[in-house]
Design a protein around this nucleic acid. Structure first.
Lengths: 231, 231
DNA sequence: ACAAAAGTGTTTCTGCTACACCCATGA
DNA sequence: TCATGGGTGTAGCAGAAACACTTTTGT
């Protein structure tokens, strides 16, 4: 079994852009880097791909190390591969885009990695080209969420309509008419109203809803047009 | 300057899925592989990333080797990285998606690579996971072209409305009402009608159009909804 | 009783769909 | 003159946008 003798082998890493929503603002999960160079500086969560590991699985592993949980929404974003992007040694990075329910992770972040949620509007400076990755992820979030109901991945199992409403307003930085938005949302058939209400955020209380999982699986790939004239 | 000593380095390649349209059918550019393993078998055009080469540039280089021309529409698709995908040695492949005007390339394909256009509906069996790449590229073409006017990249500089019409019908395998389609197309402001007609395909002749490049640059990122209910 | 947020209906308008006939020309 | 493909207009409909008031309840 011959090898491709003349070719150069390169380090390949994954980096994860992890979005969360605390009910008020969009957040990104940022860690303090544990190895040189730039040790102690802020960075996305990442890691090298192992010898016999598929990239997707490397991302899952890294995310699990960080958040302790599996089954998060994960999607390959794009490859960052400028030769000089890592000053120590050339490294190709496959970036992944993740959406998690912040409440499930808030109290179980792996403290080894000193992970913290940062407000997306106040991103600190990150190592290498990680700020570029964040910018691209923001764009991708807007693009994809305008067409597909992925933002539910950021919400807890039980959520209210005012919560989703404010989430969409955050993501697109616009005001959405609540009557039209609610109607559109309900008409997707994605929501199942619960009997109980969330009374923490208002006196009247807002009904809780759950996702209709079957319809969700069908419609995750469908065009829904949540946002009028995305750009 | 220390290196990341413990990590495994991997081969990284690019593979290009190159679409063309001959006026009748969608085509893919396929080559006969020039090196072992699987030498002589059919494959996408690809190559290893060089030591100091950005992935995007590797794809451009490979495409240029193949077609002889630059400035083709090129977009990163996704990474294929299953550990066993290349039986000789683990190779991560970054797939690229390209749209070219087949007429510009028909007579200047680099014969070293024995490149040929294959009808998309009759794809032969390709090496490794290249058929998976083709399937994904087909999906991506449909997805993206439903929203953005990228299919013009497949047409010559001067084209007719019946040509575009038939191109869309090919891509989506549907019949589109020509009145509605024409109206939508014209309303984008993307087309500039020429004085002359193409008389090769009909007696009456169909007016030639050119792309309005400025508007095209603006709208390439805009949602245009060419296809009613894409799925 | 009042402040604060939830929830709901109607009208208008725009854009999509469906549909059929005339035009220009080469053979 | 006729066969072939190119080009055009309209009416009906459905979904989006604009818009304001009532309900609930904790304080």
């Amino acid at each position: 079994m011959k090898k491709y003798l003349k070719e150069k082998r390169l380090l390949v890493a994954v980096d994860c852009i992890v979005f969360g929503f605390d009910g008020e603002f969009l957040k990104l999960l940022i860690v303090r880097r544990g190895l040189e160079p730039e040790k102690g500086k802020l960075s996305l969560m990442g890691g090298f791909i192992k010898e016999n590991e598929a990239p997707e699985l490397a991302a899952v592993r890294v995310l699990q190390q960080l958040t302790g949980l599996k089954d998060v929404y994960l999607e390959q974003m794009t490859v960052f591969g400028r030769p000089e992007r890592d000053p120590i040694e050339r490294t190709i990075s496959i970036s992944y885009f993740a959406l998690v329910d912040i409440h499930q992770y808030k109290n179980q972040l792996n403290t080894d990695y000193k992970a913290e949620w940062y407000d997306l509007r106040e991103m600190p400076s990150l190592i290498f080209d990680h700020n570029e990755m964040v910018d691209l992820a923001k764009k991708k979030l807007r693009y994809k969420a305008a067409l597909h109901p992925i933002l539910f991945e950021l919400l807890p199992e039980k959520f209210t309509i005012p919560q989703i409403h404010s989430l969409y307003e955050q993501v697109y930085d616009i005001i959405l008419d609540k009557r039209n938005f609610n109607r559109k949302l309900i008409s997707t058939g994605l929501l199942i109203r619960q009997k109980d209400k969330d009374k923490d955020h208002s006196k009247k209380g807002a009904f809780y809803y759950r996702l209709n999982k079957e319809i969700y699986r069908d419609k995750i790939g469908a065009f829904l047009n949540f946002i009028p004239n995305p750009w």
